[in-house]
Structures are given as C-alpha cells and as structure tokens.
C-alpha cells in the first residue's frame, strides 16, 4: 500500500460528485500526485481499486497528460515557459542561465535533489513574460537579479 488512507478517502469522496465514476480518474491522479510527487503502476492500481475502474483506464489517462510524471523530480521543479511571448523576452537565455548556475542539464535533477529544470509550453502568463512555474507557483517578469535571489533563497531553505 502506497497511497495513504486519507488520500484514498478523498478520492472516494470526490468520485461521488460525478454522474459516472470514471470521470474521477483525473482528480484521483491529482490527489495521488500531490501526496507522492510522482506516480507509478502500483499507484495506478490502487486508484483503480478505489474507483472500481480498470488499471489500464487509469494508466491511459495518466500517460496522456504532462502533469503526472513517473519519476520523482527535484524539490524545486523549475518549468521555464519556452513559448513565443516568453521567447521574445529572453526565455531561452533564462533556461541557459539556470542550467549554468545550477550546473545541470535540461530534464535532469541536481545531485542534491533540489532542482530539476525543464522547458514547458505556454503557461498563460504572456503579459508578465518571461516567467517560470516552480512547483505550483508562478514567478513572473523575471530578471537575472530576481532569478539569483530566488535560487539563493531556495538553497538556503534546502
């Protein structure tokens, strides 16, 4: 058993809202991901059991979306928007700067497990570009000074 009873009961409760239980797969994936930080086959299986759907139905849905990774990522999961509005204001430069500063490569996690840097598509923060989303939070209108300050804070907080 991996998922906590609390998460399982949240999933069960949320599923009651829907006319059809299969609709609750996506909320269930969110609950499980929030607790575990990644999802794997055994968690799909547990979700399937709670909802009374097939394993493959959970796996299919989970693999379609970008928000349910199968591996754990760094404590600070840095997602730099690479799309047009951010690119016009230097997002490619931002990515390179972060990788260099953290001594890592795109998609890899730093040895201290603190940081993973990826590039993502438009996050709807186009009027406050360039931006990045770190875990759930948006950091907008970024400058090099702001990025330096954030990294220092995160390193100090560990």
């Amino acid at each position: 058993m991996i998922l906590s009873n609390d998460t399982k009961s949240k999933i069960g409760e949320y599923a009651k809202k829907y006319p059809k239980v299969k609709s609750a797969i996506l909320p269930a994936l969110h609950y499980a991901y929030e607790e575990q930080g990644y999802l794997d086959d055994s968690m799909y299986e547990e979700i399937a059991q709670v909802l009374g759907v097939k394993f493959i139905e959970v796996a299919e849905a989970a693999s379609f979306y970008t928000m349910f990774p199968k591996q754990k990522r760094g404590k600070y999961y840095i997602q730099v928007c690479r799309n047009i509005s951010c690119a016009l204001l230097g997002s490619h430069h931002l990515t390179q700067y972060l990788l260099q500063k953290l001594g890592t490569k795109l998609g890899e996690t730093t040895k201290d497990h603190l940081f993973t840097v990826v590039e993502v598509e438009c996050l709807g923060s186009c009027c406050s570009a360039p931006m990045m989303q770190v875990n759930d939070k948006y950091y907008e209108n970024l400058t090099l000074a702001k990025v330096d300050q954030l990294i220092d804070e995160w390193r100090a907080a560990k």
Binding site: H30, Y65, T66
Partner: peptide
Amino acid sequence: EMILHRGGGAYICGEETALLSSLEGEKG
C-alpha cells in the same frame, strides 16, 4: 450542482470535444 474538474496539462483539452473526453476520464 457545480463540480470543479482540474485538467492534467494538455492544450487539446481546450477544444470542446476533447474537453468532454477528458471530463469523462478518457484521454483528451
């Protein structure tokens, strides 16, 4: 009743029929 349903990260789900597939628990 009003039910909040959080997407999973997929541009296509803004297309109305894909949104409905996603809401049904299918791939979008």
